[in-house]
Amino acid sequence: MSFKLLFKQKWLPIAVAALLMSIFLSFVSPAFLTLTNFESVLVQASVTAIMAVGMTFIIILAGIDISVGAILFFVSSLFAQTLNTTGSVALAFSAAVISGCLLGTVNGLLIVRFKVTPLITTLATYTIYRGMALHLTSAQNIPVPREIGWMGNGSFLSIPVPVWWMLVFTVIGIYLLSQTRFGIYCKAIGCSAQSAKESALPINRVNILAYAIGGLCAAVAALILIARVGGLQSGIGIGLEFTVIAAVILGGTKLSGGSGSVAGSVIGAIFLVLIDNGLNLFNASPYIYDIVRGFVLIVAVLVDRVSVIKNQPNALKFKTSSEGN
């Protein structure tokens, strides 16, 4: 990759921000620059990062899915309940993954068939999916055996399994977005749905597929999380959708759609984990966590805006035509 091309990458600002923060943390905390801490950061970021991969496609399509946290909760509930009832790990895994895809597909179908805005649709399904999960579990915590925890706690070739999952999803996501027709269609539809319609692009199918991918990512993230936490808890996934959306936006994906980067979303997720990691390593007062999180996010957004202005000097001026990408 040439330098000129590198400077055009959407993930560059967040990568620079993450790098600067890592340098700062390595100076102030000797524990930061260790292999185990690096591993911890990646493992902690894996759940958000995998969900952010799915969310990237949805946001590029100018959509949003605020039900992903509820999908994660439902999938975790179904997994724990199936495992406890049948004792079959294979059945529980299959039920979890299939249900994640199905719930995502339902979101997509509702959006394209009834032409309701994604925000309202997924707000409604958020409530339904959470309600279904609470009904399924009667709001009880369900432990899962430690033996099946390999998905969240195991390692393969000395690399933690959640990091493998994150890598696999990132690579597939990058490939789908940059090398396939689906990725090109996502960008085109997100840029201008009207033009995409006039060009006879399969808008509905692409939308449904993107939401299904979002559901699948939430399902895999759920399996990692439940394995790591050691069981199902009824608060699981609450507010996670906003962390995921923040990671995607920080990673350079435009909330208005049409452009984005899977790698950026993953780095965004890592960046968010770095903030808490740094605060924990400092033994910071618990009362300053929110202030620091907010402050660092503003700095990251400013870094992003500066890079946009540098690349497009007219970016802050009134736009007369929609930006293509």
Binding site: S40, V229, G235, N277, N280, N283
Partner: peptide, 21 residues
């Protein structure tokens, strides 16, 4: 002291980080 918002996933990350440091 580390905040967790009653969230087990946050508790897990906080415990991991605290033991690193």
């Amino acid at each position: 002291s580390v905040p967790t918002d009653w969230d087990s996933a946050k508790a897990l990350a906080a415990t991991q980080n605290a033991f690193q440091a």
